[in-house]
């Protein structure tokens, strides 16, 4: 059984006249220790998905339908008190911008200790020891000194390490004597490296990957950057306008993208353009929530759009490489299968 399974998850934002749909019928699953990526442009609903999983949607957002099962337990029906036991302890989060994630008026130590002591009965002295060990684990220099410092005294890269250390605080390797349960089994990382420069980015990603692998922690990586995805995730989900449009093994998706949107995203990578040439952007913009196109939401920007794309949204088909929601891919597949059937030899 998978560790986390999301079925038909829909998220809406309450509005005066008609609620806006931010997530349409999103389904996926995650195995123990698996690393997946959710990719898409800004506004695709990636972060909304991340927050919906831990029930931290900001008002007026709410979960309209669907289920999120964690280890066989339905999460969408938990009370705030029950959520407290899940967040941080079972599912830890790493936020996008380390500069604004830590509370500016509390020391690093205070913010680590409270995470430990909210979930376990442990003496302050031991919690402090554990926190400092974790800081060293994410390769922060002079950890016992950092412990007493405030966030503004640390660089962005260091702050993100602190946040990773906090996510790892309740890891069984170190506090196995207290309870084996206290291991965060899933880490959701929302664009963990966007706000950092490229060299730091690489370091943090390496650290995150290694830590997940070492501890058997599953990872959901939310990003707009395929470069990041290729380095870390085993499977990739491409999102557009609140829907998953393509999903499959990361390598296959990068080498042979099927959906026109995935192709566009990969084409837009700087390394795909020659020096001096303009980047191959996808023309147009992500549609706003209050003005969603009919049919396939991508059709206004799609080079292959046809009349039926405007009429109704396509279902998923398995292309042999990945699972895709696109009429064009569907047609190509059926042509291939006719070809394979041998009828065209006449």
């Amino acid at each position: 059984m998978s560790l986390l399974s999301v079925n038909g998850l829909s998220v809406k934002f309450r509005q005066r006249h008609q609620d806006l749909v931010a997530l349409h019928d999103v389904s996926f699953s995650l195995d123990r220790g698996e690393r997946i990526a959710i990719v898409g442009e800004s506004g695709a609903g990636k972060s909304v998905l991340g927050y919906a999983l831990v029930n931290l949607l900001m008002k007026p957002g709410y979960i309209d339908a669907g289920s999120v099962q964690f280890d066989g337990r339905e999460l969408t029906k938990l009370s705030p008190k029950q959520w407290q036991g899940i967040r941080g302890k079972k599912i830890a989060m790493i936020f996008q911008d380390p500069m604004v994630t830590l509370n500016p008026v509390l020391t690093i130590g205070a913010q680590m200790i409270e995470a430990i002591r909210s979930h376990t009965r442990i003496a302050y002295k031991d919690a402090r020891k554990l926190a400092i060990e974790k800081l060293a684990h994410v390769r922060i220099s002079a950890p016992s000194q950092r412990f007493d410092q405030f966030p503004h005294e640390l660089s962005g890269g260091m702050r993100q390490r602190v946040i990773i250390a906090i996510a790892l605080l309740l890891n069984p390797e170190i506090i196995i004597a207290i309870a084996l349960l206290l291991n965060p089994e899933i880490i959701i990382a929302d664009e963990p490296t966007t706000a950092l420069d490229v060299t730091i980015q690489a370091e943090i990603l390496q650290l995150l990957k290694q830590i997940c692998a070492d501890n058997g922690v599953a990872l959901i990586l939310i990003t707009h950057d395929f470069g990041v995805v290729s380095r870390i995730a085993e499977r990739t989900f491409v999102m557009y306008a609140g829907r998953i449009v393509e999903q499959g093994p990361t390598l296959e998706i990068i080498n042979d993208p099927q959906h026109p949107y995935t192709q566009g995203l990969l084409n837009a990578l700087p390394q795909m353009a020659l020096p001096g040439q303009r980047l191959n952007q996808i023309k147009g913009n992500m549609p706003p929530l209050n003005d969603q196109p009919s049919g396939c939401a991508f059709h206004p920007r799609c080079p292959y759009a046809e009349e039926r794309c405007r009429q109704s949204p396509p279902g998923f088909v398995f292309s042999g490489v990945s699972t895709v929601a696109c009429y064009v891919v569907e047609d190509m597949l059926s042509e291939f299968s006719q070809y394979d059937g041998g009828d065209s030899y006449e």
Binding site: L56, P80, R87, G88, A92, F95, V100, T101, A115, S118
Partner: peptide
Amino acid sequence: LQSDFIRYAWSKGISAPR
């Protein structure tokens, strides 16, 4: 209450009064 560090604090599972 709208700021990131408050949402982050929620994600750590600490209590509402705190």
